[in-house]
Write a protein that binds this DNA or RNA. Structure first.
Lengths: 222, 222
DNA sequence: ACCTGAACACCGTTCAAGT
DNA sequence: ACCTGAACACCGTTCAAGT
């Protein structure tokens, strides 16, 4: 949408985007600024977000009680994007033979998870770290997360029903799978891969390899 | 060691612990303060460490060029303790049948890794996170880490030689194993376990279960 | 109803001055 | 050689005052 500088000065409400911000959706703008800052590898500070929104240092506190609340809101937004991509990937996988094979869907899930984490490390961190804010205090984050957990739980239950799993301890498999995938994502984030001899270009291939290793480990051998 | 307040005032060097600090090994004291702060769940700040050492805010900068250097020094100390515990655990395992079975040693390694991480989460974070400082800038951390990596590498090579592994891709197994164990430790650290229905008391048992699941997945079935 | 701008208590870091 | 204490530029947060 182009700006509309030709509108009369003092335009009445209707479209409150005549001047840059000042009256725009500051909340939204602050969240976007926070995500941008993180993506740039910078520390996310309320003041810098305010600066980018061209408002005074105190203005953000009219929309968020404190810094953690801003981070939580940013995390909610990032999680929304994360989820959208995972569900899109699962949607694609559904068309193929994956519809019948729950372990292929499990694989597609893990792959989508890692691909997003590899490509959006800073946003992934905001979602998953426990440092910035109490994850449990956001109902949206809690619900979203529970739904993703339920999704993989169902895949494993289906797999078990079809006799595809060597072990009946689904909870253990699920947590091991999540630890694997979360650990891989965090190794990337925390800069561990150089010392493991995994170069930038190999990371996504290695992600796939590691997922396949895990799945072949839990699957019945036939 | 008890203090020696009976020594003459103005005691010559020899034992520079007559007065609390002020001339003691401030560097050491600051590192310990940083580790204590982390263990208490507080933010580690140079100023607070200085306060605990009863020195002025500028004093630490005579021993560390900046905050990151203090964090790196704290990480080196934590890594030393971490390594000591892992090697002790491997030493014990060596007596038993584990000496002959490289996968049992691999298991003992993973268990010791997770046990330490579960019991010292804040120190584990200082070691492993990439945020506080550039891990590669500390030769000691780099060397220590490389040695631990070489250790597990050797275990897997032995296992492969004895025909205990289903796959010949040792690098992939090694990275998957590390991702599993690192991810589990971080899930604990980042407060994920409540939402996965893993209670405080179950975490260590689950750690064991997850390691066993992984090993049974990579081992030849016989 | 929302924003400004000054203020406060923090923090990392520097630097002259002290011993 | 090492530490103090004041200073500076930041940050989160509050609050009176403006529109």
């Amino acid at each position: 949408m182009p700006a509309r500088p030709t509108s009369k000065p003092r335009a009445r409400r209707q479209k409150p985007e005549a001047r840059p911000y000042h009256h725009g959706d500051l909340r939204r703008v602050l969240i976007d600024a926070a995500l941008q800052l993180a993506a740039e590898g910078a520390e996310v500070s309320v003041r810098e977000a305010a600066r980018r929104a061209a408002v005074s240092p105190g203005a953000p506190f009219r929309h968020f009680p404190n810094r953690d609340a801003l981070m939580a809101a940013a995390a909610e937004e990032a999680q929304r994007r994360f989820r959208a991509e995972i569900e899109a990937a699962l949607g694609e996988a559904k068309g193929a033979e994956a519809a019948a094979d729950p372990l292929l869907r499990f694989r597609a899930f893990g792959l989508a998870y890692l691909r997003w984490a590899m490509r959006n490390p800073a946003h992934f961190e905001i979602i998953s770290t426990g440092r910035y804010f109490a994850h449990g205090s956001s109902p949206e984050l809690t619900r979203d997360n529970a739904e993703l957990i339920a999704l993989t739980e169902q895949m494993l239950a289906d797999a078990a029903e079809q006799g595809l799993l060597r072990s009946a301890d689904l909870k253990r498999i699920q947590i091991a799978g999540r630890a694997l995938v979360y650990g891989f994502a965090r190794m990337n984030l925390d800069g561990h891969f150089p010392r493991w001899g995994v170069g930038k270009g190999e990371v996504e291939r290695m992600a796939e390899g590691v997922i396949d290793l895990f799945i072949s480990g839990i699957a019945t051998t036939d």
